[in-house]
Design a protein around this nucleic acid. Structure first.
Length: 516
RNA sequence: GCGGGAGUAGCUCAGUCGGUAGAGCAUCAGCCUUCCAAGCUGAGGGUCGCGGGUUCGAGUCUCGUCUCCCGCUCCA
C-alpha cells in the first residue's frame, strides 16, 4: 500500500468511525473546514488534556489562561500581522509561479540600477583617471533616463500600495514589461490581495462598526495578558503562560485533510526569560517538547527537528518538530525564540509599561520569550496516522483474516473499555450491565450485546478501544471476567471486583505524564 | 490560482449502445448461541454532488459550478 492510499484510507476511516466529518457536509461541505465526530471529540479532548497537564501541572512556574478570540485591532498592528499578512500577489500563467507583485517591481528596479552602474563602469574605463563620476551621473543622458524611470515607477508603486490599487500595480508590471524569471513570458493574472486574517465587524450597526479580526494566532492573547498574569499571580521570571484555543487563517490553499485548515486549534506556551538567557531556554524547551511527543510511543524515528534558516520577523532562533505523516515529514510544533519583539511592540503601541523588575539582578527589562506552539488538529492527525494499522491474522482453520486497528495510547483513546456479555441470554447481559454501571463513573465505557463477540471486538479495534471486558458463564459462578487486549488480542481472566483498579492503572494519564 | 484524478445507499464500488438505479458490507427487527468481522428470515435506506443544455427519454452525452484527493504554489 502506498502512502497516498494509506492517507485516503485514513480519511475514509475517520469519517466511517465518527472521528472527522467534512463541515456542513449535507451542503457539499466547506473547503478545508472539518467537524469532529463522537469519537474524534474524545480523542481531541484527551490530547488537549495531555498537553495542558504536561504544561500547567508538571511545571510550577507555568499557568494557563483562556483569552478571547476577538482582540483590539491595534494588537495586530503591534504584532506585525497587519503588515506581514497582507500581500499583493500575481501569478504567471505559463510557469504557474506565484510572486509578490511589489517584490517583482522592486527586482525590476534593482535591475535598472545595475544597468546604470554598468554605464558608469564603461565610462570609467573609457576616461581613465580623468573620469569625474559625480559629473557623469548628473549629466549622462542614459543614466539620467534610467534613474528617471526608476523614480517614476517607484513613485507609482508606493502610491498604488498605499491606495491598495491592485489594477495600477498590474499596470506597472505591464508597463515595465516585467517577465516571469522562470517562463520568461508576460502572461500575468490580475493582482490579488491576500489577507490571511479573517475580518468581521464589531457592533450591531455595520456603518459605525469597527473592523476587527479573528485572531490568526493565540500567542498575542498571552502577550497582552502577560502583565496581568505576572502581577496577579506574583510570577517570577522565568515563568510561562499556556493557552489552548482556536485561531483562524484565510489560507490561499488549505490542503491535506485536517493538516492545514482555515479554522484550527493551537496549544501555545510563551515562556518569559531574562534577556541573554533565551538560547539555553530555547534548547531546554526543544528537548522537553520532544520528550512529550516521544512519550506517546509511536517511535522516536518518526520525529525530527527542522531548524529554520530563514527566520520570521520576530525570531532570533526557530525549530520545528516534524513528524512523518503519510505525506512526508511535516511540522507539528514550532519552538521559537521570539526575543522581546512582541512585548516591546505592545509596550510601544499601547503606551503601557510591560517591564519586569528582576530583584536578583536589581534591574528592569522587557523579558525575552521562548514560544512552544503546537497544532492540536495536527497532533490529532499525527496520533491517527501513527495508530492506524491493517493487520493480517492467521485463523485456526489456516485462512487469514484482516483487521483494522487504531493503536492509540490507552490514556488518549476515545473509549477506554467496552463491556460485552458473551451471549444475549442466561443473565449475562444483566451481569455485564452491572459491571458497566460500576465502571462508567471512572472511564468512558461502552456496552454492546449485538452481533458475535468477534465482531464486537473488531468494531472496537477500529476506534482504538484498548480493552474489552467480556462476561461469560463462568462469571456467574465465580465473578471473574476476561480482559481482551486490543494490541495483542490476548485475554486475561481477572476478578470483576479488581477491574476498576486494573483499568485505572492501564488508562492513566498520570502514567503517561510520568514518561515525559 | 494552474494541471491531473475523483464524486452513484452509512462504507467500498458496479452500472454495457442513452431506455424502469444494483451488489457486498453496514444499519434495524426477529431466529440461532459460538471468545476474534463471513449462519438464517425480513425491513428501511437514492432527486446518481448541484444547476443548465441536447433528447420522446440522461447516472450515462454536453456546458457550467461546488466539494474532495495528488502535484505546483503559499505557509506566524
Amino acid at each position: 500500500m502506498t502512502q497516498e492510499e494509506l492517507f485516503k484510507k485514513l480519511i475514509a476511516h475517520s469519517k466511517e468511525y465518527g472521528f472527522v466529518f467534512p463541515s456542513s457536509e449535507i451542503y457539499d461541505g466547506l473547503s478545508a473546514v472539518y467537524d469532529y465526530g463522537q469519537n474524534g471529540v474524545e480523542l481531541k479532548n484527551n490530547i488537549r488534556r495531555y498537553w495542558w497537564e504536561a504544561m500547567t501541572k508538571l511545571n510550577e512556574n507555568i499557568v494557563g489562561i483562556d483569552a478571547a478570540i476577538f482582540m483590539h485591532p491595534q494588537t495586530w498592528v503591534a504584532s506585525g500581522h497587519v503588515g506581514a499578512f497582507n500581500d499583493p500577489l500575481i501569478d504567471n500563467k505559463d510557469s504557474k509561479k506565484r510572486y509578490r507583485a511589489d517584490v517583482l517591481i522592486e527586482e525590476w528596479m534593482d535591475k535598472q540600477r545595475e544597468k546604470a552602474e554598468k554605464e558608469v563602469e564603461k565610462a570609467r574605463k573609457r576616461f581613465g583617471d580623468s573620469f569625474n563620476e559625480e559629473l557623469f551621473r548628473k549629466t549622462n543622458p542614459r543614466v539620467l533616463e534610467i534613474e528617471e524611470k526608476i523614480n517614476a515607477v517607484n513613485h507609482r508603486m508606493v502610491q498604488a500600495l498605499e491606495q491598495n490599487n491592485l489594477v495600477e500595480i498590474k499596470k506597472i508590471i505591464e508597463d515595465c514589461e516585467i517577465v516571469c524569471p522562470i517562463s520568461g513570458t508576460r502572461n500575468w493574472t490580475d493582482v490579488r490581495q491576500f489577507n490571511l486574517m479573517f475580518e468581521t465587524k464589531l457592533g450591531s450597526v455595520s456603518d459605525d462598526a469597527s473592523t476587527i479580526y479573528l485572531r490568526p494566532e493565540t500567542a498575542q492573547g498571552i502577550f497582552v495578558n502577560y502583565i496581568n498574569v505576572q502581577k496577579t499571580g506574583r510570577m517570577k521570571i522565568p515563568f510561562g503562560i499556556a493557552q489552548v484555543g482556536k485561531a483562524f487563517r484565510n489560507e490561499i490553499v488549505a490542503r491535506q485533510f485536517i493538516f492545514r485548515m482555515r479554522e484550527f486549534e493551537q496549544m501555545e506556551m510563551q515562556f518569559f526569560v531574562r534577556p541573554g538567557e533565551e538560547m539555553q531556554w530555547y534548547e531546554y524547551w526543544m528537548e522537553k517538547r520532544m520528550r512529550w511527543h516521544r512519550a506517546m510511543g509511536f517511535g522516536d524515528n518518526k520525529y525530527r527537528f527542522h531548524k529554520h534558516e530563514k527566520l520570521a520577523h520576530y525570531a532570533n532562533a526557530a525549530s520545528d518538530i516534524e513528524f512523518e505523516f503519510p505525506f512526508g515529514f511535516k511540522e507539528v510544533e514550532g519552538i521559537h525564540s521570539r526575543t522581546d519583539f512582541d512585548l516591546a511592540n505592545h509596550q510601544k503601541h499601547s503606551g503601557k509599561k510591560l517591564q519586569y523588575f528582576d530583584p536578583d539582578i536589581n534591574q528592569s527589562y522587557i523579558p525575552y520569550v521562548i514560544e512552544t506552539s503546537i497544532g492540536l488538529d495536527r497532533t490529532f492527525l499525527l496520533v491517527l496516522s501513527a495508530a492506524y494499522a491493517e493487520e493480517k491474522i492467521a485463523k485456526e482453520d489456516g485462512t487469514t483474516d484482516e483487521r483494522v486497528v487504531l493503536r492509540i495510547p490507552p490514556a488518549l483513546a476515545p473509549v477506554k473499555l467496552a463491556v460485552f456479555p458473551l451471549v444475549k441470554k442466561d443473565g449475562l447481559p444483566e451481569m455485564a450491565r452491572k459491571i458497566m454501571d460500576d465502571l462508567k463513573f471512572d472511564f468512558n465505557c461502552q456496552y454492546e450485546e449485538k452481533d458475535t463477540i468477534g465482531k464486537r471486538y473488531r468494531r472496537h479495534d477500529a476506534i482504538g478501544t484498548p480493552f474489552c471486558i467480556t462476561v461469560d458463564h463462568q462469571t456467574l459462578e465465580d465473578e471473574t471476567v476476561t480482559i481482551r487486549y486490543r494490541d495483542t488480542m490476548e485475554q486475561e481472566r481477572v476478578p470483576a471486583s479488581r477491574l476498576r483498579k486494573i483499568m485505572s492503572e492501564k488508562v492513566s494519564l498520570t502514567n503517561l505524564l510520568r514518561q515525559i
